[in-house]
Amino acid sequence: MTKRPLVLLDVDGVLNPARRHSLRLRRHECVLDGRSYRILLNTRHGAKLARLAGDTGAELAWATTWEQHANAEIAPRLGLPALPVITVNGDPGSRAGEHFKTRHVAEYVAGRPFVWFDDSLGVADWHYLKDHPGVDEFLLVDVDPGTGLTDAHLTRAREWLSGRGAAAVDR
């Protein structure tokens, strides 16, 4: 079993912010299961995420309700290859106030350290992950859904991935 760290990516609110705040964001039309969606993406995010993963020895993975659609609609537009997908849909709710994706992430990471970029996580998620027996070190990066992923978020993740060690779980 590998201890290679993971970088987990949400789409809506992280890579697809709620509002256009930069000229670098481009509108795209996606059709998922017969429904049309407009998304905003910064194509520079793909190279920045790939560089983060490459420089720190991490593996990128999707932790989004887009699931496999992220590989079809988001990854190519960002210049990323198909990434592993954490299956998160079909779970109706939380057990202790945590986001419905959190339990699936806890099972997926299987002891690997990880950074998770998401706009919907809180204290309940941190406690759930900290107390879950299959979870080791992690960093939750709270992304403002209005602006999405920023260089500051990427720098925080890079510093944590580069400096992690025997330290306690970080928030």
Rank of each mutant, 00 (worst) to 15 (best):
P17E: 07
L121G: 01
G163N: 14
G34T: 03
G57K: 03
L49W: 10
V31M: 04
K48D: 12
T64K: 12
D170A: 15
V141S: 12
A82R: 15
A18C: 03
L80T: 03
W126D: 01
R19A: 14
L140Y: 07
R95T: 15
G90E: 05
D142Q: 01
Y108Q: 08
R26Y: 07
L40T: 01
G122K: 10
L49P: 11
G79V: 10
W66M: 08
H99C: 08
A61F: 04
R77G: 02
T147P: 00
N16D: 14
L129Q: 03
A18W: 14
E98A: 12
M1Y: 06
E67D: 05
L8Y: 08
L32T: 09
G34W: 05
V7I: 15
A152H: 05
E67M: 13
A18S: 12
T87F: 02
H132E: 14
G146H: 11
V105S: 03
R164L: 09
K101R: 13
E137Y: 05
T155R: 15
E73S: 01
F100S: 03
I74W: 07
E29T: 13
P81T: 01
A124Y: 12
S22N: 00
E137S: 14
A96F: 14
R156F: 02
D55L: 11
G111F: 09
T43K: 05
D91I: 15
D12K: 11
R112A: 09
A47Q: 14
D91H: 13
H69C: 02
E107H: 09
H21D: 08
C30H: 11
R4S: 06
A106L: 10
G93V: 05
G79T: 04
L25E: 05
G165I: 03
H132N: 11
A106G: 11
D136N: 10
A157T: 13
K3M: 13
Y128C: 04
T102E: 08
D125R: 11
A58E: 05
H153Q: 02
N16Y: 04
T64H: 07
E137L: 15
V169G: 00
A168W: 06
I74R: 02
H132Q: 07
G54I: 13
L25C: 05
P133W: 11
R77K: 14
H45L: 02
D125G: 02
R38L: 09
T155M: 12
A50W: 04
L161I: 04
R51E: 15
H99M: 06
E159P: 00
N16Q: 01
L52R: 07
A96S: 13
D118M: 11
G97P: 00
R158L: 07
L40H: 03
H28I: 05
G57N: 04
L32C: 09
A152I: 08
R77H: 07
M1F: 09
P17V: 13
L9Q: 10
L60G: 05
R77N: 03
D10L: 08
L140M: 13
L60A: 10
S36E: 12
A70E: 04
V88H: 00
G13S: 01
L8K: 09
H104P: 00
E159G: 02
N71E: 01
R103V: 14
